[in-house]
Design a protein around this nucleic acid. Structure first.
Lengths: 210, 210, 210, 210
DNA sequence: AATGAATGAGCTTTCATTCAT
DNA sequence: TATGAATGAAAGCTCATTCAT
């Protein structure tokens, strides 16, 4: 009874109590698998191993829980670091980046955050916008910055590096991302990714290398 | 009750009675605006101008109705004809095509079939797959066929025309489609589309023109 | 099949379908017995002999159903006609009226609308106010009008007949209404009512008769 | 767990520990403002500045807490002393009393114990009955006792002083208490109270003064 | 004694579906 | 065929209550 009260702070007080984590983990799976409407609070409670009531101790309502999930995915995917060392040459760097990027987008195991957010964007525009900015636009800006450096290094000649970055990133998705998200093909293999990314790098450099 | 139930045939002789059309038209709008879960049979009935009961005369349940809508969109968008005359040169043809394609993807006014199908693909993989095949893969094949012709005509040199087609089509979406579908930016203007598609055409031809 | 569709109009269309009546009857009992918060839609459905869903076909929500009950009670109690013939003398008329009035206020069988509305008036001020106006204030005005006539007939001398009317009506309630509503005594008997009302009439006339 | 539970006595030695008081004070406000059903144990805990768990240390359940509040109000309002000095003349005494009584009944600021108890009386008849006895009937008895004295002093002539007391007290409420409790009019002003009470006194004395 | 985390029953409400007509 | 009345299962959410500390 001495030091028995070391941590029992209020659940909401701590930004990241164990229970909160537990709920987020359960909710993540359910939301990403079933979408916002398809997921029920009951199922989330079951997945998280807590009672329905407990959900509402930590999150005001279903939307708040969902937005926390998106926020978390946003942070996690947004901080995916790519090796975009401005000194390195474009062939290697873009190739490496492309492979990492596609693997991020086409993560195996169902439940894609991108799909889930896209699906709800019409009804929760802010959620969609913030996710896009933090993840997709953020990645584009990183690549654009790298391209700026290579332009300065006289390896490339590009007017609009942000557009070019986006072009490259979209090219890398060719035949991979859409079939994946539409469930038309399984998660792309390493070999498929290599082939497509290599081709994208070739096309990109054929167009922009000095 | 005597001979009034000739057989559990489709409600009317023709596969596409006026009522059926009416229902599909109403349902289309509601499903594309609100998604599968967001749409309610009541709202669909109202939009279609029929009673809720009638919905079940023509479609066994909500899923069947939804799949019919997707089927219809599939057929309609699948037959969106692009002028891919194999005789025409690549600059003009790809430019025109690219603009038309982006306008198809980024149609103003909410209700996007692509988003709606994408959203449900995890829970209805067949629906997603069939839609992808009939619309997106089909468009890729059309472009690939055109590219085959231009390769044969010695204008282009491409190993894998299907991959190249997809690359081009994805490049055209750069900075346009994703922000649009995530509600991060408004429907792209004509000028924006022109700029992006022109750049995609330039990049593509710089890489693949002989 | 000829004249088989004579009446199946929309439930809400008819202001007073049988089902609607059935629901109101069930809801009346439950609301008046348990109050707004104490009554549950499930119990109301059971009392009305319909499913919970049906409740919402006829009434938008619990409040709307409650307000309909209050409205109904208002109309019913508001149109309780008292014989306030301006020609009749005050002793008889006020005595008769007083007895009828107390019997209205202290109706046997539990479930008092007055109590129920009073209880919710703080949270639904409009409901409270409208009920008061239509039932209590309306009765006061009727009596005041009668008193005006008796003043004109030189039987009484009263400055403020509305206040006098209210005084008389409150006097009639002495030792009857409050114990009744607080459940401190059972419904008053005829004899008790007679005694109290007679006394109120005597007091009133001793004060106001010319 | 050894000797830490001396016995299931009341939480503390004194019947009215500071904590208990604190809870009662918080609960009073919430119950009187929102009624029994409208008040939640959470809100009560917040208002009292204790945890929800503590509520259950001092009171077995919500009903017990509520009944304690009513008990407390009963005691407090029951001991509201009115200057009913049997030596003083009726005009002054009844006038003073009437004003004080109406001010007690029509206290500004929502939270009326009378309304709250009345509201629940059907479901908690004992609570209602005890409150009526201790507050309303008690006040009537006080006035009746005063009237007895004035009858003995030959100022008044009254057969049933308890009935007369109640008559007077109800007359004082005319046009004031009911509109107030139904939220049909705001808290009566001092001037309004004066006017009504003066009139009630006049009527009463016109009828009962020798 | 006091807490606050956790629960689960129960609430209001919605909605896909059925069925008599 | 077409209807709309009716349903009941299940949703999101609240809250009185319990319990380990």
């Amino acid at each position: 009874m001495v030091a028995s009260h070391p941590a029992p702070l209020s659940p909401v007080g701590e930004e990241d109590s164990a229970k909160r984590r537990q709920i987020l983990d359960g909710a993540r799976k359910v939301f990403l698998d079933l979408g916002f409407d398809g997921a029920s609070m009951g199922e989330i409670a079951r997945a998280a191993g807590v009672s329905k009531g407990t959900l509402y101790v930590y999150f005001t309502d279903k939307s708040a829980l969902f937005e926390s999930i998106v926020e978390q995915e946003k942070l996690e995917q947004g901080k995916a670091v790519f090796n975009l060392d401005p000194e390195r040459d474009a062939v290697t760097t873009l190739g490496e980046f492309g492979r990492a990027y596609i693997q991020l987008l086409c993560r195996p195991g169902g439940g894609s955050a991108i799909r889930t957010v896209m699906a709800i964007a019409e009804r929760m525009p802010d959620v969609g916008k913030r996710f896009y900015e933090a993840v997709l636009a953020h990645a584009i800006r990183q690549v654009a910055t790298y391209l700026d450096a290579r332009v300065a290094a006289k390896e490339l000649e590009i007017k609009d590096t942000e557009l070019a970055a986006a072009q490259f990133m979209m090219s890398c998705q060719a035949t991979l991302f859409q079939p994946f998200i539409f469930q038309a093909k399984p998660t792309p293999t390493r070999a498929e990714i290599d082939k497509v990314v290599d081709s994208a790098v070739r096309m990109f450099l054929a167009a922009y290398r000095i």
